[in-house]
């Protein structure tokens, strides 16, 4: 019994310790005198790896999710003779929920796991330690550009996802199933508010970007430097960031709407 309770305690202390180390890592890599000339090429490189290379998966998933929403929405709405509300349905569900959340989940799988594995390998092969030997702060040199790249990329990716998804819904609803084009767009425009809906979509995706990138970087930075450790950390990144995104999504939605 005592063993059980102390086991819970040990678990809790370990988790809180990890949270503390993660915060310290983020703090030292983000806070400090900015060195644009030194870090900007790094940032561009990471934006390419994290952002540009994720476009294809984000755009294709967005297209299909929008098309499925259009199809499913049409099948339900047509029963109530309310096909006119299809644009509103597709736009609001993608903008409020699916855009930020699915983009963040895909981002965690596509870019987050890659970040963890890359930093983990750097650590396992002691590249981070040798950087410190050369008086280069690995937090500023390795972690910070990747963090900023993630934070910049995910909101852009979520926006692209949203636009492609809405056009996917339009493709199915208007061009295939014959909802009127004008009603589709005007119903959307009268029900989507710039600040309330799009603003919240943006806030959500920024929050998710910080969380997903942070989890990915910390799992890579903190892993046990073995091949098994790298694989475990990569799995942890995807599992933890997916759970964090879904949980935070509920909290943010409850706070906002």
């Amino acid at each position: 019994m005592i063993n059980f309770i102390s086991g819970i305690g040990r678990y809790g202390v370990r988790k809180i310790n990890a949270l503390g180390r993660a915060t310290i890592m983020l703090f030292y890599s983000v806070v400090g005198k900015p060195q644009f000339d030194k870090n900007f090429p790094q940032l561009i490189q990471q934006l390419y790896v994290v952002g540009v290379q994720s476009i294809s998966i984000i755009a294709i998933s967005g297209l299909f999710i929008g098309m499925v929403l259009g199809l499913q929405g049409f099948n339900v709405l047509v029963r109530f003779m309310a096909e006119g509300a299809l644009g509103q349905l597709v736009a609001l569900s993608i903008i409020r929920e699916l855009g930020p959340v699915v983009a963040a989940l895909l981002f965690a799988g596509r870019a987050g796991s890659a970040l963890t594995a890359e930093i983990g390998l750097k650590k396992a092969t002691e590249q981070l330690t040798s950087m410190e030997m050369m008086a280069v702060d690995p937090l500023r040199r390795v972690i910070a550009p990747r963090f900023w790249a993630g934070v910049i990329s995910l909101p852009i990716l979520a926006t692209i996802f949203t636009v492609v998804g809405i056009y996917g819904g339009k493709l199915v609803g208007v061009d295939w199933l014959g909802v009127d084009d004008g009603i589709f767009w005007s119903g959307m425009q009268s029900n989507v508010d710039f600040w309330d809906d799009l603003g919240m979509c943006f806030i959500k995706s920024v929050v998710f970007a910080v969380v997903v990138t942070w989890i990915a970087l910390f799992n890579g930075y903190d892993l046990v430097p073995t091949s098994a450790g790298i694989s475990k950390a990569t799995t942890n990144t995807v599992v933890q960031s997916s759970l964090a995104v879904l949980g935070l999504d509920f909290i943010l939605t409850a706070l906002m709407f």
Partner: peptide, 21 residues
Amino acid sequence: VGLFMLLGIIAGVILALKVAG
């Protein structure tokens, strides 16, 4: 990367003008 940023901005403008009206 520049193209990526531009794409994001264009997507944002489309959202603002076409979707939010």
